[in-house]
Design a protein around this nucleic acid. Sequence first.
DNA 1: ATCGGCTTTCTTGACATCGAGATACCGGTC
DNA 2: GACCGGTATCTCGATGTCAAGAAAGCCGAT
Lengths: 165, 165
Amino acid sequence: MEDEVDRLVAAWRRERPDLDVEPLEVLSRVSRLARHLDRARRLAFSEHGLEPWEFDVLTALRRAGTPYQLSPGQLLTQTLVTSGTMTNRIDRLAKKGLVERLPDPSDRRGVLVRLTDEGRDRADQALAGLLDQERAILAELSRTQRGELAGLLRQLTAPFDNIPG
Amino acid sequence: MEDEVDRLVAAWRRERPDLDVEPLEVLSRVSRLARHLDRARRLAFSEHGLEPWEFDVLTALRRAGTPYQLSPGQLLTQTLVTSGTMTNRIDRLAKKGLVERLPDPSDRRGVLVRLTDEGRDRADQALAGLLDQERAILAELSRTQRGELAGLLRQLTAPFDNIPG
DNA sequence: ATCGGCTTTCTTGACATCGAGATACCGGTC
DNA sequence: GACCGGTATCTCGATGTCAAGAAAGCCGAT
């Protein structure tokens, strides 16, 4: 089955036969797939009354385990947004009662963001919904193929995640 | 080498051992890698005085071949943005003199967006720079692995690209 | 001919993001 | 015990995106 990137690559080979556009076969697919996933997620979450960005923050806290709290800085590295954005997100989530801000007892510059009970429930519900949707998307591949794909992607993401990026 | 998604999945298995979080091994990596790529591209393009969104539109027109023109609707399907966004992008590119708007001779509702000579040059320069950067990122993988990865990703993107999404 | 449904593009208002700078605080050094 | 580079968070203005709907024109069926 052909996809939009096949057409894109064919077009470049026709227009710029002097260039090696092989990298696009991988990385353009990554970008486009991510964009499709964003849209699909937005739909899935709207059934639970959450925006994708809300999900990202709430689940980061949920994963941290009891007492479900992290510093804004830790949330930054997990969600790949800037500090200004995170401040704004925490404000809005706090206003909705899904998280609360606490002073960090060991560092007076610092803040801890804690999930409320309602925030935790919402995160759990939305996660279950998301996993169902993602399983459906991945049904295109066999279990073995999914493992291979995960491994190959890990090789590309690891440098970004481990070197200060 | 471990990446952030390995840590994320391990955390979920600890916090929610009742859930099957295997889908995240693939799709969270896709989303996170796309985010890293966005940042890297922004840097690469800034050397050519272009924003990523400008690159997306200009190269779509460049790929179309002489006379380098497409309708806004065709640009939508290639760039995965909404129509309001595309109108805005065309406005700004036209103001910078990189594209121009022409009436579609065969459909009076329609418009054709055409690349100017300067727009074409800028697109060509930025593309070369992008490919260099992407080649460096993909050096983590062998030629064979890149082919496998492209093939697996195609299986996931094809349904989105071919069914009305 | 004309009606109604469908496309295509643009308009509008709300909103989330970024980047740079400001502020407060930490920890080690002299 | 005062300094100083580094760190953590927040503030602010500019900007890009989205969703929904408006306006204009196309086309097939009656």
